Amino acid sequence: MQAKRALICGISGQDGAYLAKFLVEKGYVVIGTSRDAAASSFANLQKLGIRHAVETVSMSTSDSGSVLSTIRNAAPDEIYYLAGQSSVGLSFEQPVETMESIAMVLVRLLEAIRFLDCPIRFYNAGTSECFGDTGNQRANETTPFRPRSPYAVAKASAHQLIGTYREAYGLYACTGILFNHESPLRLERFVTQKIVRGAAQIARGGSEKLQLGNLDIYRDWGWAPEYVEAMWLMLQQDRADDFVIATGETVSLRHFLDRAFRYFDLDWNEHVISTPGLQRPSDIRIGSADPSKAKAVLGWSAKTHVDGVVDKMCEAVSS
């Protein structure tokens, strides 16, 4: 039986690297894109020990011709779009780039699939940021979007585009509405990695205070290697659909802080300060999820909840 082929746009990032590893272990031929594949280090693939098992190609997402030829040459059964600007905070500084890299690139990919008229299954990386502040409501697939950042606006637009192409053109296209998911591959600009690395540095004798923004936020934090399985499962269904992917457990950032610092036998209150300059122009206070549809339809549920996530990340920076 011929091996399935998957094209991963954004293979250099956290999710792209873990997805590549998951698919390689499933026996897939995995092709990953980069703006300049010859110059890219693909460091995360190296860390996971799969660089040799993945083919990498150059693709300019701003060039429709490059997108079309890449898809034609790769001849994938499945495409995963995990690329684009991924930082909420940075999106306030780079709103145009954020909209371009998320929504406009998605249109080029969908148009290429439509033009080629091949039975390609397409996964789009969505985000819980689209819901805005959920308050006491646990967001599910029918919860209205109330985006509060350029990043969330771009992702909400992409989500609507997926639905439009699915209904109007019959494409097998779906969006995973993923709540926060972390791992040792997270960049340090993300608060979870900043906390874990900051705690580890202080435990080694560092004297500087860890400066963070708003501490009064609540999130659903999961383990990224588990979430890529949910992405894959979405493309194995008979019918394309969208799914909320989360643990279903929401805790405060202070809980995350406490767990990380206690791992290193530290009291975070003695080492952390909240700096107004690091706060976003508008922030989401509470993000709460109802992932019951994913469990019922995909058979997927999170195995690692927030305390396990924190411990695994702390263990990684300790080794």
Rank of each mutant, 00 (worst) to 15 (best):
Q2L: 14
A6C: 01
C9R: 04
G10A: 10
G13F: 08
Y28F: 12
V29L: 14
D36Y: 04
D36N: 15
D36R: 14
A38Q: 15
A43M: 15
G49P: 04
I50T: 08
R51N: 07
L68E: 10
T70K: 09
R72I: 08
A74M: 04
A75K: 13
E78D: 13
Y81R: 00
L82Y: 03
L82D: 09
G89N: 11
E93W: 05
E97P: 06
T98S: 07
E100F: 10
S101A: 05
I102R: 10
V107N: 09
L110V: 04
L116Q: 12
R121V: 08
F122W: 04
D133G: 02
A139N: 02
N140A: 13
E141R: 08
T143K: 00
R146K: 15
K155Y: 02
F179N: 00
E182P: 01
R186V: 15
L187Q: 14
R189W: 14
F190T: 06
I195N: 07
R197V: 10
Q211S: 15
G213P: 07
L215E: 14
R219V: 11
G222C: 01
V228Y: 05
E229K: 10
A230H: 11
M231N: 02
L233D: 11
F243A: 10
I245M: 12
I245W: 10
A246H: 03
G248A: 01
G248E: 03
V251W: 07
S252D: 10
L253K: 03
H255F: 15
L257W: 11
R262Q: 15
Y263D: 06
L266V: 09
W268I: 00
H271S: 06
Q279D: 12
A289D: 09
D290T: 11
K293C: 00
K295V: 07
V297M: 06
K303L: 12
H305N: 14
D307M: 07
A316I: 01
V317S: 01
V317Q: 02
